[in-house]
Amino acid sequence: MGHWWDRNIIEPGKLPLLLALAAFVLTFLITRVVTRLIRAGKGPFGNVTAGSVHIHHVVPGVVLTVIGGFGAVASGRHGFGPALSAVIFGIGTGLVLDEFALILHLDDVYWSEAGRKSVEMVVLTAALVGLLLAGFVPFGVNDLSEDELQNRAGAVVSIGVNFLFALIALSKGKARTAVFGVIIPVVALIGSLRLARPGSLWARRFYRRRPRARARAVLRAYHHDRRWAGPRRAFGDWLGGKPDPPHPLERD
């Protein structure tokens, strides 16, 4: 275990990244527990206010993210500074992304259906950082040989092709596939080859005069959403809490 730790974490300099990821995940989980207790009216917790202003935890999150980011830049690569800055940065990022939906909508949608975007963003971020920690490099650079890395033209072409696949997947309405495809190029390749989602930029541009392709895209999206909507919703409810039912006026 000690040999694996030294070889895979210490020597590559990934300890700050591991600490930041751990702080990020723990902060999100603790924050969700506290907010669910506040919502249920249990425990000693309560909303933080300044007069009539509700201070959302994204505010201290931004402050901690700034402190951690500048601390990491100023502390160099040695000593206790990078580890401390990584922990502060992870805590701040966890607080910020837990209210990502508030930033996106500029409204307090924490316990609404729109608030699910925060949970999705946290899960996506943790997964991507986990892939980086495991050794994956954006645009598949880690898959290149030493000769290919020394050949700048070959490396640039490889990165450009992988980036193009990710852009195609994004234009087909597959945002998650595109994001993960930046880290794992084969994911972007698969997303770029499969049918576009209805209403996506690709579908509007290339399926407009192809009724068969348009019908197949609608059918595939229907089956995909029907298969995964339930498990995705159940996971979101378990991790982030069940959203409040929409207000009757909002349904109209």
Results as ranks from 00 to 15, higher is better:
30 I>F: 13
30 I>S: 14
30 I>P: 00
30 I>V: 15
31 T>Q: 12
31 T>K: 03
31 T>I: 00
31 T>G: 14
32 R>Q: 12
32 R>M: 06
33 V>P: 00
33 V>G: 00
34 V>C: 02
34 V>G: 00
35 T>I: 00
35 T>N: 00
36 R>Y: 00
36 R>V: 00
37 L>K: 12
37 L>I: 01
37 L>T: 02
37 L>E: 05
37 L>F: 05
38 I>L: 04
38 I>D: 01
38 I>C: 09
39 R>W: 03
39 R>S: 10
39 R>I: 00
40 A>M: 02
40 A>D: 11
41 G>R: 06
41 G>K: 03
41 G>I: 01
41 G>E: 02
41 G>A: 04
42 K>V: 04
42 K>L: 12
43 G>L: 02
43 G>E: 04
43 G>N: 03
43 G>M: 03
43 G>T: 03
44 P>N: 09
44 P>L: 12
45 F>W: 14
45 F>I: 02
45 F>P: 05
45 F>M: 05
45 F>G: 02
45 F>R: 06
46 G>M: 00
46 G>F: 00
46 G>R: 10
47 N>F: 12
47 N>G: 05
47 N>P: 04
47 N>D: 08
47 N>I: 08
47 N>W: 06
48 V>A: 11
48 V>P: 08
48 V>I: 15
48 V>R: 09
49 T>E: 15
49 T>G: 01
49 T>N: 13
49 T>D: 07
50 A>T: 11
50 A>V: 14
50 A>M: 14
50 A>I: 14
51 G>N: 11
51 G>C: 12
51 G>T: 11
51 G>Q: 10
51 G>Y: 07
51 G>H: 09
51 G>V: 07
52 S>H: 12
52 S>V: 04
52 S>Q: 13
54 H>T: 13
54 H>R: 15
55 I>V: 15
55 I>M: 10
55 I>D: 05
56 H>Y: 13
56 H>N: 13
57 H>Y: 11
57 H>I: 02
57 H>T: 05
57 H>S: 03
58 V>Q: 05
59 V>Q: 01
59 V>R: 00
59 V>A: 08
59 V>E: 07
59 V>P: 01
60 P>Y: 02
60 P>K: 06
60 P>H: 06
60 P>L: 06
60 P>Q: 09
61 G>P: 09
61 G>D: 12
61 G>S: 12
61 G>L: 11
62 V>R: 06
62 V>W: 08
62 V>N: 11
62 V>I: 15
63 V>S: 08
63 V>Q: 03
63 V>C: 07
63 V>K: 06
63 V>N: 06
64 L>P: 04
64 L>M: 14
65 T>G: 12
65 T>M: 15
65 T>P: 01
66 V>W: 10
67 I>D: 04
68 G>P: 05
68 G>K: 04
70 F>P: 02
70 F>D: 11
71 G>L: 09
71 G>I: 05
71 G>S: 07
71 G>V: 06
71 G>Y: 06
71 G>T: 10
72 A>C: 10
72 A>V: 03
72 A>I: 08
